[in-house]
Design a protein around this nucleic acid. Structure first.
Lengths: 96, 96
DNA sequence: ACATCAATTAGACACATATCGAAACGTCGA
DNA sequence: TCGACGTTTCGATATGTGTCTAATTGATGT
């Protein structure tokens, strides 16, 4: 696992991203089906009682925080969990 | 270090508590001066550009999340970091 | 070209919350 | 008892944000 050094701003983005329960659920879902290909966006939607618009918003936040990577392919968007970012945040918390 | 099992609700409270940068600063400050006695509230205030009212509010949130323990003694309030809670949250994140 | 479908954007709304000033509360020393 | 001091509570305000509907974009198959 590569090591990432996070700025205060990035820490803040991650903390905010993790503060919404729905986003955490989404993260978990992406983390479970963690094939390299990434999880299709609509796949997530079928498991979360939420509009496509809302889901899109959450994914943008997760991406902004560096917690996921969005690979757009044609009309699809495949999500991949960026574990190094999550790990770096845990390291930050450990240092408190 | 004792182990704590957190409910979904508690996880959410912790995540929200950690989502505010000022609260994280406060946590750090409490964590540093981590003598068993606890850090006096006014000590924190002298390092954070914030009103007593606001500080009180943040401490209530941190306590609600189980991240600190407030020992009131006379007119003073001594804060102590509850590391087991923080650890439990990190364990939760690790399981994502 | 057209219809369809996945995803995004725009705009609106409701609700949460970080912050403050002012007032109240409780403790302690004079 | 009185005043000072640390802390809390109250009420108000401004900002942030999760959610929706509707409209838009972009790709794909017929």
């Amino acid at each position: 696992m590569e090591t990432v050094q996070l700025s205060t701003k990035e820490i803040q983005l991650i903390a905010k991203a993790l503060a919404d329960p729905r986003r955490v659920e989404i993260l978990k879902q992406i983390g479970e089906g963690c094939c390299d290909a990434g999880l299709p966006c609509s796949n997530i939607r079928s498991c979360q009682p939420v509009t496509a618009a809302t889901l899109s918003h959450h994914m943008k936040e997760l991406e902004r925080a560096g917690l996921i990577e969005i690979a757009r392919e044609g009309k699809f968007a495949n999500l991949k969990l960026r574990r190094p970012t999550l790990q770096a945040y845990m390291d930050y918390l450990k240092a408190i």
